[in-house]
């Protein structure tokens, strides 16, 4: 049962990743691309947690934690860059 659920979720998350990349390439504007990247980070968290469930190990949760905690900082940096050019003022 869990296996089936896992497979379905994994497929969906990976499909979401593919769609993120599509948005990133197509754009059309920089904020679109940036949002695509940010969503990719969010989806990766899901993917890693699902992988951990599937492989039955706890080792990957720190990676998920790290993405949750630091992933948005790249996004913030790019946002600040688009807004002000200079990210550390």
């Amino acid at each position: 049962m869990l296996d089936t659920a896992l497979w379905i979720s994994l497929t969906l998350v990976v499909a979401a990743l593919a769609l993120n990349v599509y948005r990133m390439v197509v754009g059309p504007d920089m904020p679109d691309r940036l949002l695509a990247l940010d969503t990719m980070y969010v989806n990766s968290i899901a993917l890693i947690v699902l992988l951990g469930l599937w492989l039955n190990t706890k080792d990957y949760f720190e990676a998920a934690l790290l993405i949750a905690m630091l992933g948005f900082i790249s996004t913030v940096a790019v946002c600040k860059y688009i807004l002000r050019g200079d990210i550390i003022e």
Binding site: L70, I73, S74, V78
Partner: peptide, 12 residues
Amino acid sequence: LSVEVVTMILLM
């Protein structure tokens, strides 16, 4: 993951 973030900030 952590290098990725630092690289991004540096390049920006």
